[in-house]
Design a protein around this nucleic acid. Structure first.
Lengths: 236, 236
DNA sequence: GAAATTAAAAATCTCGAGAAAAATTGTTGA
DNA sequence: TCAACAATTTTTCTCGAGATTTTTAATTTC
């Protein structure tokens, strides 16, 4: 997760083994196949991902940037642990940064931005329609990410967007963990639609309010689940 | 730069070669011995730092977290480039985050926090006294960092503090680049003192104002230098 | 003389094996 | 039965060497 981003929205495909191992590992952590706190034994994992030991170590080092992997001294790597407290922190920090970025984006976005926002919303809506069977879940996840990304795309601060991409990843991980337990009761589509209209109308205050609630609601629903099942999925 | 920080303020010394290479490289980049944009040839550098190629690569991968090193595809590593625009972004983002963190810290700090803040200020002041010959520069830099760190130490958000530590590092790099060109005309001591008093008096608004100006002033002074010497130290 | 093609050189990326450290297991003694 | 100690196993950390790719230099051609 480099700050000098992969040239403007292009999904650059991996050209080295390090990078593809990095991506595969990242996916497996975010989607929960590698559990929080789990030990990441290099000798064991290198076979699963089909690379050498040194290559895998390098990929794991890159994942530390994303705070998805932690390492300590002479004791190897672990999947970053999770906790409700951490997710609350992520949520609050994200609300602050993303609202700020959204305001700037609304203030500076031009016609092309509006067009791409509309397009991103449309693609997301299409994915929402046919997301009854949880098959096209990955597609929806990707388009949801892009919608949020485009919302703040006109914000000129690269650092703000860099930090937000890290926080979004973290939040996605928590969100996915909870989705096995509870089908979504919220009408996320309506929230996204309201967000779109507020942004297109250049109503920064309203858009920021909606976005705040949107982000916070995800936290609250997971908080509620955790309260019901206090012994499960709790770590560190 | 791991988010699961080295246990509460303890300066953990490196126990692996990767980590000591990481620290040495970070120092050399921040202090300008490795110039912005410079190519980092692994085969060449491994001798300088006395480690193997794989070890050095791993250290470089860790430096990507800090955005001090960038890498692209099959073309190796480079020192992250610098630009006035980037420094402006760093400054603005830092003002936003650090003021927010300071407000939280002032709101939540207890007696122990006040005490450590006073202590950090005192150590900084001592270093300021004898910093006439630029010998004890490193000492002053370190104590300045700690003072800023302690100011926001009582802020409960780990993520905010994590991002701020990255931004501080970046800012330090720019600050050091300019100090070869211009002795400090500002009375930084006075600024720090005002900041201390506002914080101790729990005057969050005033403290945030002072901190904003404090951070922005550093940017403006470098901006002024760059305007005079438009052809030097300009990259990307 | 400049552009394009080709050959040589350098650098990156990758792997497997060996030394050092940590974790596990088994053993001994109160 | 439990704790402390020692030997074994596992895992991490580290290095050097080989295969691709990129970069540089030289040659040819228009």
């Amino acid at each position: 997760m480099n700050i000098s981003a992969p040239a403007e929205g292009l999904a650059t495909e991996p050209k080295t083994l390090v990078e593809s191992a990095y991506r595969a590992l990242r996916r497996d952590i975010i989607e929960g196949r590698l559990a929080p706190g789990e030990k990441l034994r290099v000798e064991h994992l290198k076979d699963n991902y089909g690379v050498g030991a040194g290559t895998l170590r390098e990929a794991l080092s890159l994942l530390i940037s994303d705070a998805l992997v932690v390492s300590q001294g002479q004791r190897g790597f672990r999947v970053a642990p999770v906790s409700l407290k951490d997710f609350e922190d992520i949520t609050q920090t994200r609300v602050m940064l993303e609202c700020n970025a959204l305001r700037q984006s609304i203030a500076m976005g031009d016609d092309a931005w509006e067009a791409s926002l509309l397009a991103a919303f449309h693609r997301l809506a299409k994915a929402e329609e046919k997301r009854i069977g949880s098959e096209d879940r990955e597609e929806w996840e990707e388009r949801n990410r892009i919608f949020h990304e485009v919302l703040i795309a006109a914000c000129p601060s690269r650092w703000l967007k860099h930090f937000l991409s890290i926080l979004y990843q973290q939040a996605e991980r928590y969100r996915r963990m909870s989705l096995y337990l509870q089908p979504i009761p919220r009408d996320i589509h309506v929230e996204h639609e309201a967000l779109l209209h507020a942004a297109m109308n250049r109503d920064a205050d309203k858009a920021a309010d909606i976005l705040s609630e949107h982000i916070r609601l995800t936290f609250r629903s997971i908080q509620a689940i955790q309260a019901d099942q206090p012994n499960e999925k709790r770590q560190a």
